[in-house]
Structures are given as C-alpha cells and as structure tokens.
C-alpha cells in the first residue's frame, strides 16, 4: 500500500499540494481517502489532467501510486 495512504487519512480537511510523478500539480483540501486514491476539493478552479479525475462526487481523484510529493499548504482562519 502507498505510504501516502496513512498520511492522507490522518490529514483529512487540510490543504495540500500534490505533485504527481509525471510533474502535474494539484492543490486542494483532502476530502476522502480510499486504498487506491485520494480525493481533493480543489483550490482555485477545477482544472486538472493527467492522473487526476473527477470521482463520484468526491472531488478530484488522484491515484496514491502516482503521487511524487505531497506538501501541506500554510493556512489560517479569520
């Protein structure tokens, strides 16, 4: 299983920047995690190709195996 599975599960609701192994970049909030995919609520428009796809109303799906890097984005509340 991908090493990103656990880290995604533990950080549902947080904003991340995911870069896939083929160099695509996705920014969004982690909404849902399955054994194979992480689903993001995208920040800044619904663009995204490559490994990302729109999955069953759970946001933008990215295959865990396709993740090259995952970084947490800084955020704050008002």
């Amino acid at each position: 299983m991908s090493r990103y599975y656990k880290v995604c599960c533990e950080n549902i609701g947080r904003p991340v920047c995911v870069r896939t192994v083929d160099g695509k970049e996705y920014r969004g909030f982690i909404r849902r995690v399955t054994q194979t995919h992480v689903y993001l609520e995208p920040i800044g428009g619904h663009a995204g190709y490559g490994y990302g796809f729109w999955g069953l109303g759970f946001g933008l799906g990215i295959a865990l195996g396709a993740i090259g890097t995952l970084a947490f984005l800084p955020w704050f509340f008002i």
């Binding site: 549902i12 909030f29 909404r31 609520e41 995208p42 920040i43 109303g57 946001g59």
Partner: peptide, 13 residues
C-alpha cells in the same frame, strides 16, 4: 463532512 463545507473551505482559502 458535508461537501458544502469543503466548498466553503476552498473559497475561504
């Protein structure tokens, strides 16, 4: 968490 809250979270960001 209801998707509507994720939508607001993303707009907030």
């Amino acid at each position: 968490i209801d998707p509507v809250y994720f939508d607001i979270m993303a707009r907030h960001y």
